[in-house]
């Protein structure tokens, strides 16, 4: 069932050039109406996330309630794209957001390390999907990938994709462990060829996570895949994006790398836990002209 017979030919990446491009993108100045639009768009792209050992049903219900109503004073806000939880809590989340249009995403495949036998990973994926997960966020086997076993890594992704059935598959590369932008590009290409619906930077457990250079390289991989195949793969930066300013910079980068089509929750997500409230703060500030406190917004 190998789906990766053809070697992945990834172009070389010059890290300094990537950083310069990022710096230039970050010099875009987003003001007024454009900023407000971007903030709304950001909210609609958030995968509101809790991934802690201490997560409980109560914590997940809290999270889902926040997803359903970001800020009581602003009823016209879009809802977030999804809530993202561990498999054991998918059922709780699913019931909590029922009928809202908010997706439930579940990490799986022995998140975050991925160091479990494949059978167990696949079982975990199937359980999550059975419990109602609309989206599955898997981790790749970084050890095998770094050891050069691309075939294994690709086959594993393909197996998980199969186990996902109708659920969308997000493939977490854990870029902070891959070492170079070249490796990140190779992993992106491999994941897309092996069945990923989204590629995702990080688990959130490893730093650095979704840095701008890493995301740019992944966006370029998505663009090249699209231009080659016509297939639109989504992107999810996760970890380290906690401010509205960061998020807007991402949107600028998406706009100028992939274009308008990707400025859509179906193709771009932010994996974040505290981003939403900073965005809300900025929205209220834009509307009222008064700088806001975090305590003005619910956890």
């Amino acid at each position: 069932m190998s789906t990766t017979a053809a070697p992945v030919e990834s172009p070389p990446i010059d890290a300094v050039g990537v950083e310069e491009r990022v710096a230039r993108l970050c010099s875009r100045s987003i003001k007024k109406e454009a900023k407000l639009q971007a903030l709304h768009l950001t909210l609609s792209m958030i995968d509101l996330t809790t991934l802690e050992g201490a997560d409980s049903e109560g914590k997940v219900r809290q999270l889902c309630a926040k997803a359903l109503q970001l800020h009581a004073a602003l009823p016209d806000l879009p809802h977030v794209a999804a809530v993202c939880v561990y498999p054991a809590l998918v059922g709780v989340a699913k019931r909590a957001v029922e009928g809202s249009g908010i997706h439930v995403a579940s990490v799986a495949t022995s998140f975050p390390a991925g160091q479990a036998p494949l059978e167990i990973k696949l079982l975990e994926v199937r359980k999550a999907v059975e419990a109602g997960a609309d989206e599955v966020d898997m981790v790749i086997s970084r050890g095998r990938f770094l050891a050069g076993d691309l075939a294994y890594t690709g086959d594993e992704i393909a197996s998980v994709k199969e186990a996902c059935a109708d659920a969308h598959l997000k493939v977490i590369l854990e870029t902070g462990e891959l070492g170079t932008l070249d490796a990140i590009r190779r992993a992106s290409d491999l994941a897309m060829r092996s069945g990923a619906d989204f590629i995702k930077t990080s688990t959130g457990k490893i730093k650095p996570a979704a840095t701008m250079p890493v995301v740019l390289v992944m966006l370029e991989a998505i663009r090249d895949h699209y231009l080659r195949t016509g297939e639109k793969i989504g992107m999810k930066p996760a970890g380290g994006i906690s401010t509205a300013k960061d998020a807007i910079r991402h949107l600028v980068m998406v706009r100028e790398t992939l274009g308008q089509d990707w400025l859509d929750p179906d193709l771009y997500r932010f994996g974040a836990s505290s981003l939403a409230n900073d965005v809300l703060r900025q929205i209220v500030k834009q509307r009222s002209g008064i700088y806001q406190s975090f305590d003005d917004f619910s956890l």
């Binding site: 100045s29 987003i30 003001k31 639009q37 971007a38 706009r255 400025l263």
Partner: peptide, 8 residues
């Protein structure tokens, strides 16, 4: 079309 930048 879509999201653009306001004058800055």
């Amino acid at each position: 079309d879509g999201w653009g930048y306001a004058p800055a």
